[in-house]
Design a protein around this nucleic acid. Structure first.
Length: 455
RNA sequence: GGCCACGUGGCGGAGUGGUUACGCAGAGGUCUGCAAAACCUCGUACCCCGGUUCAAUUCCGGGCGUGGCCUCCA
């Protein structure tokens, strides 16, 4: 059961071979904490969490290091803090906390490390200094810029040639740039803007350098896997490669680059102007999507229904269907014991470039067998918990925000059963209808009448 | 304008050069006061047009559609 991963750098699936099986290292670009994360941000968090779990399963829990940074220095943060009249520290700390809560609610394990840019300034400055010394960067008008012409491989990840990009003519050319594609490593900070002392004066880092510096600090010059959304491929990841490999004399920053596909909402791109912009927090806590709130595990399962590299269409229908599925599992598994190991067929599907839809197909097969078989039930439970999809919740736990009046339901059921005993089936059916309007379905079984939440 | 990805049955969604994905919904059946659950059976899909091939949804070319990047938006 070899693990294969699609490597964006090579444009093909490759067998994964770690540099050090005793310490498999993965870096994923985390959030810039100026506002709540939206549902599109949730995709890489979930996808790479599944990979983290799979790697831990294969190499051992203590042999995988997963770094997901928190970017807490950025111009949007400065702007947002000023706009709200709060301190930068309050804004970034508050937003980071919500992000971590959201990630947890979606069933993700915490990464091994979540370094912050503000805690990594010496490493950032040291790397920039190294790039200047290596002639990959130059100082101009208080800025330090990366010189793309110094890197013959520039563009290898996104497969673009420099001259083609410049031909796009949408590049804003600052007068101090030697080449239009040169990007900022360090820029000056004036007044009360956040700034750190450096050889180039008081300033702050540009966008891409923090990931290069934190990757090196926590994972070494070369690590195994680097992940993120497809939109980061250019320029962010391209620039990370240029910086790290420029600072490390051409040593590769990562052996495998992975990118998750984009997310659309009800068939349209998610944007504030279309009014379909939706945050994780809103899905979890406010009735703004489909008129109800959604359990984090429902969101997680819905996300894993599509292969991570495919585009995904985020719809109310999809969530409703997912919710029904997970509630059915809960009815079967709540209170059940768990097997020692997850299902082989599921693990094998995941090992094929994280083919989660194929893994789910195997899970459905297991669920079908589990109805009649304790062993399969326990294996199913273990498999679902392995994936972060189930942790012994009751089915009603997934009907978040559903107001239940159990006494009223029980009363109606008692009345209906009295009517049935009296052969007054018209009245019994009327009562069934009334119960149904409460979002509850009833079943007459050999042991009496049971009910369950269906919406 | 340049570069790139995707387009599968009512919906969601894998996969493959010639054989069943799978889930939901739907149809029929057993069962049931009626239902539900459970179980059994059922769909013969792959954007369009060419080409390669004995054979293409699966490879190649073109077109159309959707989306992404080229602007410090995952």
């Amino acid at each position: 059961m070899a693990l294969t991963l699609y490597n964006t750098l090579a444009r093909e699936k490759q067998v994964f071979k770690p540099i050090d099986a005793k310490n498999v290292r993965m870096y994923v670009c985390g959030p810039t904490v100026y506002d709540f994360a939206h549902i599109g941000n949730a995709r890489p968090v979930i996808v790479f969490d599944v990979l983290f779990r799979l790697l831990r399963h294969i190499y051992g829990e203590s042999h995988v290091t997963y770094v997901r940074n928190i970017t807490d220095v950025e111009d949007k943060i400065i702007a947002r803090a000023a706009e709200r009249g709060v301190s930068i520290r309050d804004l970034t700390e508050g937003t980071a906390k919500v992000y971590q809560e959201d990630a947890l609610a979606l069933g993700n394990l915490p990464p091994t490390l979540e370094p912050r840019v503000t805690d990594s300034m010496p490493e950032i400055i040291a790397m920039i200094a190294k790039l200047v010394a290596n002639k990959h960067a130059y100082v101009a008008e208080g800025h330090v810029l990366f010189d793309v012409s110094s890197d013959p491989d520039y563009g290898k990840l996104s497969r673009r040639a420099l001259d083609e990009m410049i031909a796009g003519a949408r590049v804003e050319v600052a007068p101090y740039k030697k080449n239009p594609m040169d990007f900022v490593l360090w820029k000056p900070s004036e007044g009360d803007m956040p700034g750190w002392d450096s050889p180039w004066g008081k300033g702050r880092p540009g966008w891409h350098i923090e990931c290069s510096a934190m990757g090196e600090k926590h994972l070494g010059e070369t690590f195994d896997i680097h992940g993120g959304g497809i939109d980061l491929q250019f320029p962010h990841h391209e620039n990370e490669i240029a910086q790290s490999e420029g600072a490390h004399h051409g040593k590769p920053i990562a052996n495998y680059w992975m990118h998750n596909g984009f997310l659309q909402v009800e068939g349209e791109k998610m944007s504030k102007s279309l009014g379909n912009f939706i945050t994780i927090r809103e899905l979890l806590a406010e009735k703004v999507f489909g008129g109800q709130v959604w359990h984090g595990r429902v969101l997680r399962l819905a996300m894993l229904g599509t292969h991570y590299r495919q585009p995904i269409d985020w719809t109310v229908d999809r969530l409703a269907q997912t919710k029904a599925t997970i509630m059915e599992w809960a009815r079967m598994l709540h209170g059940e014991l768990s097997a020692d190991a997850p299902d082989d067929e599921v693990m094998s599907a995941l090992s094929d470039d994280l083919n989660s839809p194929a893994a789910l197909a195997a899970i459905y097969g297991l669920a079908s067998a589990a109805r009649a078989n304790t062993g399969d039930r326990r294996r199913l439970k273990r498999t679902l918990s392995f994936l972060g999809l189930y942790a012994d919740e009751r089915d009603t736990d997934f009907a978040v925000g559903h107001e239940l009046d159990a006494a009223k339901i029980e009363g109606l059921i008692a009345a209906r059963n009295a009517a049935r005993r009296a052969k007054n089936f018209a009245e019994a059916d009327r009562l069934r209808g009334e119960i149904s309007t409460l979002g509850v379905a009833i079943e007459d079984g050999p042991g009496g009448t049971t009910w369950k939440v269906v919406s």
